[in-house]
Design a binder for these strands. Structure first.
Length: 261
DNA sequence: ATGGTAGTAGAACTA
């Protein structure tokens, strides 16, 4: 029996966020850190910065947009790059690996732009494709974590102004249905397990909203979910606001969870 | 208030 500590962080450019990510790793020592929006081509990924603080890192990205990475204290096994092993591109939004017996699936779900846009249709389709990916690649009976920027605030308590925001591409009945369909494969929201009904717990604060953090103008769109057997072994789940309060922050912050494995 | 800021870029896009 040991503890498995995992965190997820939309870094909004890994190269711009090294001064936050590296000290955070050294201070918190997770077994695994999942990153989204790395915004860097694979040939420019800062591998050495992760090596220097004792982490392996696997990644997939083509530059300006998206990109995902997974840092791990042990070498990741069975790495899968991309949702679409045999289908159309998924724009560098998924990386999955086995880490000390736990399968970690790290995704950056499409944001959706606007509910009348092709990007929104792509987002809904992406959830469907992701469920198919889970179904053909893994089993809900295995210890598996799905985490990342999932671009959905599942409940009214997950946004600062549910009345005004209802219908937004990240707070939207169609997205809730698509997200629920993935969860019904066999995944539980670990954050809500420890904070049931707790409002005002956010992982994203828009840069464009003045004093968004101090005025609590946030969204809970970054998540850690686990299959039933693993969820039963969870110990904690919390949002760490420190990275969002640091100088030159990402617009997201870190969510982390611990499991007994 | 249909803006605001920050990232990739080296203009316009994504969030």
């Amino acid at each position: 029996m040991r503890t498995f500590k995992i965190a997820s962080f939309n870094v909004n450019s890994i190269r711009s966020r090294l001064d936050i990510v590296v000290p955070w790793l050294e201070r918190n020592h997770p077994d695994c850190l999942c990153m989204q929006e790395t915004k860097v081509r694979d040939d420019s990924f800062p591998v050495d910065d992760f090596k220097a603080c004792g982490y392996h890192v696997v990644f997939r990205g083509r530059g300006q947009y998206n990109g995902v990475a997974l840092a791990s204290r042990v070498e990741p096994k069975n790495v899968i790059y991309g949702l679409a092993v045999d289908g159309p591109e998924d724009d560098d939004r998924l990386i999955a690996a086995g880490i000390t017996g736990v399968t970690v699936v790290n995704t950056y779900v499409p944001q959706g732009h606007d509910k009348d846009s092709p990007q929104f249709a792509y987002k809904l389709k992406w959830y469907d494709r992701f469920r198919d990916f889970l179904n053909r690649t893994y089993s809900p009976s295995q210890p598996l974590i799905w985490c990342g920027d999932l671009n959905v605030a599942p409940e009214s308590i997950d946004v600062h102004d549910p009345k005004r925001l209802l219908g937004h591409v990240c707070f939207n009945p169609q997205v809730w249905d698509a997200f629920a369909a993935v969860r019904s494969w066999g995944l539980e929201d670990i954050f809500r397990k420890y904070h049931p009904g707790e409002a005002g717990q956010y992982t994203f604060f828009d840069y464009r909203v003045p004093d968004a953090v101090s005025r609590a103008k946030g969204w809970r769109v970054d998540h850690i979910l686990a299959t039933k057997s693993l969820a039963a072994k969870s110990l904690s789940c919390k949002i760490d606001m420190a990275p969002r309060l640091a100088p030159k922050p990402s617009d997201h912050t870190v969510i982390m969870a611990e499991f007994q494995i």
